[in-house]
Amino acid sequence: MSRLKGWKEIPIGGLILEAGNAEEYQTGTWRTYRPVWDEGKCIHCLFCWIYCPDSAIIVEGGKMKGIDLKHCKGCGICDQECPPKVKAIEMVLESKLQSEKGE
């Protein structure tokens, strides 16, 4: 988490002076479940990319490349929308993943 600024360092009145700065606000820590993507199963239909409300599906050259975990809030819509025959995304408890990896 970046250092929070003091009252003398920020614009007055709650103004946001730069466009598109929502990217700086990291919402990944809100997650309870993390989408785990299986590249081998993925057919790159990009349904997850269309439905993701946080633009957290990373796409390059028309292909799914992974999930932006700094912004993904873990809503599970990608898992829901991934075609039943594909099932390339699985929601796993964040706490479980973190304790396994010692994160």
């Binding site: 009252w7 920020i10 009145g13 709650g14 466009a19």
Partner: peptide, 19 residues
């Protein structure tokens, strides 16, 4: 382009009141 009146959560609201 700027934003007036965004959501101001516990992390910054107090700083704006101090201003």
């Amino acid at each position: 382009p700027i934003t007036f009146g965004p959501l101001d959560l516990p992390d910054y609201y107090f700083e704006h009141k101090r201003q």
